[in-house]
Amino acid sequence: MSTVVLLVLVVPVLLAGLLATRSLAARRRPGDPETESSRRRGAAYTLAATALSLALVVVLTTTSALPLGLGQALAPLVAGGAMVAVILVHEATWPRATGPVRSASLRRRSLGESAPRWLLGAGAAGVVGLWALDVVGILVGDPNGRSLSATIGEETRSAGPFPGAFYAVPTLVVSLVVLLLVGWSLKTLADRRGLSGDEQDRASRQLSAHRILRGAAFGHLATLAGQAVFAGRAISSVHHDTYAGDAGTALAVLGLALGLAAVAALVIPSRAVLGLAPQAMRVS
């Protein structure tokens, strides 16, 4: 099972890494030094975020640092949080303005203005879905927090793994940390020094907001996908001869679709272009 989870998580993260590598090639394109530097920095930090996320996924899915599959359950959210944390460092260490004469735009920057709407929506859906599933899981799961039981007639059936309190509580704690990191990162992004051209500044902020949100969206959607599959399987196993069993199967199928959505959130590049228009290249 851990090999499957490892592959399911590693492939999309690697894909994101490949897209980031493609962006490194862009630094050879001509452009003004400030934009080039910003692009190089962004690509380097994206690679660092990918490497750290991969390392965490491997550690959590292949070692027994956390018991009973908890490491595998938390791996996508931890990986997504690591991506956000690395981009937070990127924004917090943005080079200071230098030179004897410095210029600043008087445009007011707001917290979410650079965030791509579709990624914001996907992330929000992932967060709401995950919290809803986990709260329900805590309420209906067995006291051990890992299985689901039901008494039908005189027969008591039990199935697991199920996202009860054992999996759901740590998931909600990590989710909260990731959400705090996202808020902190977006605030840091809004307050950091701008590039000299309004268009380039807007593009660089859109790219950073995309990098922040895709980590969080991937983490939440992938975790929701995994938990939906396991919850659906447990429900259909316990209630296999009732309509609830069909609902469980539907939940498991929805989980697979959510897995695809998580991969899409991670690998679809930003539409913002940083650099001179004729030579500009899309940066993931």
Partner: peptide
Amino acid sequence: PTVRALAADLG
């Protein structure tokens, strides 16, 4: 702009 953002822009 916020105080913090303008301060960052001007260094």
